[in-house]
Amino acid sequence: MYKIVFMGTPQFSVPILKALSESDQVEIVAVVTQPDRKVGRKKVLTPPPVKALAIELNLPVYQPEKLSGSEEMQQILDLQPDLLITAAYGQYVPTKLLYTPEFKSINVHASLLPKYRGAAPIHSAIINGDDETGVTIMYMEKEMDAGNIIAQQTIPITKQDDVGSMFEKLSLLGRDTLIEVLPAIFNKTNPSIEQDPNEVTYAPMIHSEQEKIDFNQTSEEIDCKVRGLRPFPGSHTYLQGKRMKIWSVNPIEGTATKEAGIIEEIRKEAIVVACGKKTLIELLEIQPFGKQKMKTRDYLVGAGSQLKEGCNFGE
């Protein structure tokens, strides 16, 4: 059996770690993940999902705030692993750690590289309206997500998919693709294909300014943005000076008669808003400032009952 170190943090990484723990090809000698973080309004110190599974599996866990130069890094090197595998670890991996094992370190990345290098490939694929995405098993280099491709698998993005559903689908696809290709990696018979530098695009971490809905975009573009930010970090707009999160929308047929961002119609189930290029969108699920997430119909019965056509979102 080959000794491996697994590095990952969020739920995306959990099925991959679980499958490796059940594999008869490898022995997991260490799991490296991010430190526990304070979560939620009550700021409860919470372990990352990978740590929770590692403890359940009785695997040794390392949680350095920063790997480079840390005692934990030397301890990991002392284990003399044959291979390092990462999947959404979320931290820079020092070069020494990448190249010391016998087999070159590999990563499970949630995009079809060289498209969407970076921290938010799943968000970006949905926001940009892509019809498909996938996973890439790749060799790791000092430059982010720039290593040679070992294997790729493609999966469609439906109009019902959001970041949550695609995280789950791609996690399982990444798990299966990794397990399938491991024998070839250990036999050193696997493909190793250079990425085309002319096809490189980037998917950096989502910043707060990107979360605001721009109603000058078309209804289809807004739908992609809402789904591409759901369930985290979420998208928002402003109504009557107060921030409102938007959780579910539906582009509808018809031609807007009002300027983008202005309410065209108040229906029993939805608020219809004018968008760019005279398109229309229904707001189906919202979260008014200081309130819980709710169906728009429930909002309209209560606090939104005084809302009128002609009110402007975004201000």
Score class of each variant (00 low, 15 high):
Thr177Asn: 07
His236Phe: 15
Val301Cys: 01
Thr158Ser: 15
Tyr139Gln: 12
Leu178Asp: 06
Gly241Ala: 00
Leu182Glu: 13
Leu17Ser: 15
Gln80Pro: 07
Ser248Glu: 14
Met144Trp: 06
Arg297His: 01
Thr86His: 01
Leu77Val: 10
Ser105Ile: 04
Phe103Glu: 14
Ile122Gly: 12
Thr158Cys: 13
Val26Cys: 09
Asp24Cys: 07
Asp82His: 12
Lys291Tyr: 08
Gly276Cys: 00
Arg117Gly: 02
Pro191Leu: 08
Asn187Glu: 05
Asp78Met: 10
Tyr139Arg: 13
Leu57Ser: 07
Leu178Gly: 03
Thr33Asp: 14
Ile206Pro: 02
Glu253Ala: 13
Tyr139Leu: 09
Ile157Ala: 14
Leu97Trp: 15
Leu173Pro: 00
Arg41Pro: 08
Glu22Asp: 03
Ile185Asp: 04
Glu71Arg: 03
Val249Gln: 04
Ser305Tyr: 05
Ile127Lys: 15
Ile155Gly: 05
Glu199Thr: 10
Gly69Tyr: 00
Ala151Asn: 02
Gln63Ser: 08
Gly234Arg: 13
Tyr202His: 15
Met1Glu: 00
Lys225Met: 12
Leu77Ser: 11
Gln34Lys: 15
Gly129Gln: 09
Glu65Gln: 12
Ser68Gly: 08
Ala184Leu: 11
Tyr2Ala: 12
Glu211Lys: 13
Ile206Arg: 03
Ile122Cys: 11
Thr189Gly: 04
Tyr299Leu: 02
Pro48Tyr: 04
Gly254Cys: 13
Met138Cys: 14
Lys38Ile: 02
Ser219Tyr: 06
Lys142Asn: 08
Ser23Thr: 06
Val181Leu: 05
Lys278Gln: 15
Gly261Asn: 11
Leu300Asp: 08
Gln25Met: 13
Glu220Cys: 04
Ile126Leu: 13
Ile222Gly: 08
Asp214Pro: 01
Tyr139Asn: 12
Phe12Trp: 06
Tyr62Cys: 12
Ile122Asp: 11
Ala151Cys: 01
Phe167Pro: 06
Lys268Val: 13
Val93Phe: 09
Ile122Leu: 07
His123Ile: 11
Ala88Trp: 00
Ile262Tyr: 07
Val93Gln: 07
Glu269Phe: 06
Pro197Ser: 00
Ala120Asp: 04
Ala260Gly: 12
Val39Thr: 14
Met144Gly: 01
Glu199Ile: 09
Val273Phe: 09
Leu97Glu: 15
Val273Ala: 05
Asn58Thr: 14
Val5Glu: 15
Lys308Asn: 13
Phe12Cys: 08
Val61Ala: 02
Asn58Cys: 15
Leu307Tyr: 04
Val26Tyr: 10
Gly134Tyr: 07
Asp161Trp: 14
Ile246Gly: 05
Ser111Thr: 07
Asp214Val: 02
Asp145Val: 07
Ile16Arg: 04
Gln217Tyr: 09
Ile127Trp: 07
Ala256Gln: 09
Gly129His: 07
Leu284Arg: 15
Cys224Leu: 02
Asn198Cys: 04
Met138Tyr: 11
Ser21Ala: 15
Glu309Val: 14
Thr100Tyr: 09
Leu173His: 00
Ile179Gly: 01
Ser13Thr: 07
Thr257Ser: 14
Arg37Leu: 11
Pro10Glu: 05
Pro156Glu: 06
Leu67Gly: 01
Val50Glu: 07
Tyr2Trp: 10
Met244Glu: 06
Gly310Asn: 02
Ser105Met: 04
Arg37Ser: 11
Ile252Tyr: 14
